[in-house]
Simulated scan of single mutants.
Amino acid sequence: MGKYNVRPDIDAAAEKAGPTLGSRREIEQLPGVLWEGETVDMLATGLYGGGNGLVALTSMRLIFLKHGLFGQKLEDFPLANISSVQWSAGMLMGTLSVFSSGNRADIKSVAKPQGEGLSGRLRMLIATAKTPATPAAPVPPQAGVQDVASRLATLDQLRVAGAITDAEYQDRRTAILNSI
């Protein structure tokens, strides 16, 4: 993908992904859709929802981002909500199927090396997250309030930056408030 000088983690993921076409705009816009403290691990390109865009595996979620001339499409799958991943490939390209919250999302035309890497890494993250560990200490109520406040602040930043529309802002704000 080349050097973009966007952010060290994004540049490193772009270097690992190798050459792809038409992803420069999405890579440059990626910092605007990331949450505070979220880092990018892997990148690829693919087709989803009728558009060619960027697939980013981060420390918190799998993101599909398409930034076109007439708007932006962003769909994310929080890692905690992904129940399984399926990879099917032909000679050069394949389809990454993500099962999340009872739904299936197919990201098509992913280059074989990147798709294999993404599916393997996602499987590892899913398995690690579901492995029983020592019981977690109860979260104090204040921590949840701070999380909601930080998510709302990030959402406000996305709207101000023009990364999401007013309608998307209202939908996501409502979803965050309903999660309390």
Results as ranks from 00 to 15, higher is better:
Ala127Val: 02
Val110Ile: 13
Gly94Asp: 06
Thr39Ser: 05
Leu47Ile: 08
Ala143Thr: 14
Arg173Tyr: 07
Val110Lys: 06
Tyr169Arg: 04
Gln146Ile: 12
Ala12Trp: 05
Glu75Asn: 12
Leu122Ala: 11
Gly90Lys: 11
Gly162Arg: 00
Gly68Leu: 13
Ala17Tyr: 10
Thr45Glu: 08
Thr45Met: 09
Trp35Pro: 00
Ile107Phe: 06
Pro140Gly: 14
Asp156Pro: 04
Thr174Lys: 14
Asp76Met: 06
Val148Ile: 13
Arg159Gly: 02
Met42Arg: 14
Val85Gln: 13
Ala111Met: 05
Gly71Cys: 04
Lys73Phe: 03
Phe64His: 07
Gln142Asp: 15
Val33Asn: 00
Val85Ser: 14
Ala17Cys: 09
Pro19Trp: 13
Arg151Gly: 00
Met93Ile: 09
Thr154Glu: 09
Ala127Asp: 12
Ser84Lys: 15
Tyr4Cys: 01
Val98Gln: 08
Ala129Met: 11
Ala105Phe: 13
Ser59Ile: 00
Ile176Arg: 01
Gly2Thr: 04
Ala13Thr: 01
Arg24Gln: 15
Val40Met: 00
Ile180Ser: 10
Gln142Tyr: 15
Gln114Val: 13
Ile176Gln: 02
Leu158Gly: 01
Lys112Asn: 07
Ser83Thr: 15
Val6Ser: 01
Lys112Phe: 03
Leu92Val: 09
Asp171Val: 15
Leu54Ser: 06
Leu92Phe: 10
Gln72Tyr: 04
Leu158Tyr: 03
Ser88Lys: 10
Val110Asn: 09
Leu74Arg: 15
Lys130Leu: 02
Ser179Thr: 10
Ala127Gly: 07
Gly22Pro: 10
Leu43Gly: 01
